[in-house]
Each structure stands twice: as structure tokens, then as C-alpha cells.
Design a protein around this nucleic acid. Structure first.
Lengths: 153, 153
DNA sequence: GCGTTTTGCTTAACATGTTAATCTAATGGA
DNA sequence: TCCATTAGATTAACATGTTAAGCAAAACGC
């Protein structure tokens, strides 16, 4: 029994023992291991997320991309501009809907991902080795369940 | 069996099914509920974290504060300037170590927290009601364990 | 069909995240 | 003591987070 929850329902919890803080710290502990790799290749964490999502989809519009990468639309606008400058992505207007922007990886974008993927996968494999695949899977399931439970107004 | 992990150890996982993404999305799902409150009171999430940490400590130096609030030193410098302008905190030099800055809440800072705390606690209580106290505690323990397992070079 | 509303995206403005550089105070070593 | 090193904090520069506006295209209502 590692904890003694002393709370009457009207006070703030200990900051450290709250979902937002715990999730933030845990994520930070994980990301810490990937940052050197990303920095060495000159991409931000968010740019890398966008590239990975694009790799998993042939072509997407900005909204789906933003949702899949968990990036807000304004940030995505800037990121896409950057990635287009580096020629990693190509953009076109949706012929069916003039408002939508369709985005896809270029050959350079694919090549860039191929260049980083092995190291990234190796880091993740090291995480799995240290934490255990089963524990990670269970945690991912729990997080998924949490989000499902929170879905609705 | 909700998932079929198809991975040979040399490819990237599906972006959505990774620890960084899952932790980010879960945190976002939780924070979403607190944002309206913080916005209404004119504080950012990070400023609120700093205030809460300060409330739990009589007086701390900037380093401990940054660590406890999971905020990097450069961000904390700017945040403290803002909070000092609003007269929520007071700063002084450590007499024993001229490099350290000691920070504490002012009466206004305490009053501000008292003003928001009930609503914040209510939102958290609603989270607990929806997710179950047991599940949240288990998740917090798992996240703590994850960080412990990742501690070391 | 036409004006209104909604949707997809971009800009703007300000706060924070992130890395590197800087500056001052304390520490260590000769 | 003196100098080099280290530690705590700030500043700088650029990218992203966040909210609010703005803009054009599409959908809606009559």
C-alpha cells in the first residue's frame, strides 16, 4: 500500500500525484531518450510525428493529420511550411473541396524517414527491453481506456 | 485480445500505439477539462502548476521549483517574472548562496489559489467519478513505476 | 439562386518548450 | 591566494502551444 490518500474532496491533491503531472513526467522520461536522435537529424519532435503519420497514410488532409499527430491546426500550418521548405512533403488542393489541403510525403521525405527509423526503433526496443513489452502494452491499453472513458461533452 | 502487434523490432510502431503519443493524448484528454477554468482566471497551465507547487512548500529555490513543476529553467524564469508582476510571488536571494533565488507565495498568491482551488478540485473529483479512484491510483502507480524503471543514464 | 452559416485552414499575438550562450557566485585545486 | 572549473540562473533565438481573428470555399435554409 504505497500511498495514503488524504483528501476530503474539496482540496487540491498533491501536485505530483495528479494525472496531468504524472502523465507529463512519464512522457518526459520517455522522450528524453529520443531527443538526442531527433536533434542530431535536425527535426523537432512534432515534425517527426507529422512525418511518421504521413508515412502511415498515402495522402491526408490537414485536419486528419493534425488529429493523428495530436497537433493543433495553427502549429501544423507552420510545421507543414517548414517540411515543405525541406522538400519532405508536397501539398495540393483537394479537387473535390477547395478548402482542404492534401499532404503527402515526397521521395526525400521517405528517404529521410528511412534514415532515422532504425535508430528510433532501436531506442524504442531498448525501452521495451527495460520496461517489458507486456507492461507497455498494458499501459497503452489503460491509456486508451482512459481516453475512451473521457470521450463525450 | 485488442491488438495484433506486428513488429519485427526493426520497424517503427504505429504512431498511435507508442508511449509518447499515448501519454500525450491521454494528458490532453484530461487537461481539456481544466483549460476553461484556467483561462477564465487568466493563468496558464504552467503558471498554475508553479503556484500549486509553491503552496505545498514554504519557500523553495528555482531549481527545486522547476523540477517539482516539470518546467525547464528558461521557462520558469519567464513565468516567475509574470507571477511577480501579478504580485502572486516574492523573490529573494539566498543569503547562504548568492546564486540561488528563493521564491514564496505572497498573501495575494495564496488568495488566488484559494479562489480557484474549489473549482479545480471539483473537476478532478468529476474525473475520479468517471474513471474510478482505483483506476486512477493504479495508473499513477504504473506511471511512477515506469519513471523509476527509466531512471539511470 | 442568394444570403447566411458552417467548415478548413491560415495569421496574429502571446506564453512556453528547447537548446545554446552568457553571467555571476561558489568550489576546487595548485 | 589565485585561477580554473562548476553550479544556479537568466537571456537569446527559434519552434510549438494556445486562443482569437480572419478568409475563402462549401453547405445550408429559404
Amino acid at each position: 500500500m504505497p500511498h495514503s490518500p488524504v483528501k476530503d474532496g474539496f482540496e487540491l491533491s498533491k501536485t505530483r500525484r495528479t494525472l496531468p503531472m504524472a502523465l507529463l513526467r512519464a512522457r518526459e522520461a520517455v522522450m528524453e531518450r529520443f531527443r538526442p536522435l531527433l536533434l542530431a537529424h535536425g527535426v523537432t519532435e512534432q515534425q517527426w510525428r507529422v512525418l511518421r503519420v504521413l508515412k502511415e497514410a498515402e495522402e491526408t488532409d490537414a485536419s486528419d493529420l493534425a488529429d493523428a499527430a495530436s497537433i493543433l491546426a495553427p502549429s501544423l500550418s507552420r510545421i507543414l511550411r517548414t517540411l515543405e521548405t525541406r522538400a519532405f512533403i508536397a501539398t495540393r488542393k483537394d479537387p473535390q473541396d477547395g478548402r482542404r489541403a492534401l499532404i503527402r510525403l515526397t521521395a526525400e521525405g521517405h528517404a529521410f524517414i528511412r534514415q532515422i527509423a532504425p535508430e528510433s526503433a532501436a531506442i524504442y526496443a531498448e525501452l521495451e527491453a527495460r520496461l517489458g513489452r507486456a507492461r507497455i502494452d498494458a499501459l497503452l491499453d489503460d491509456l486508451e481506456a482512459l481516453m475512451t472513458a473521457l470521450e463525450r461533452a
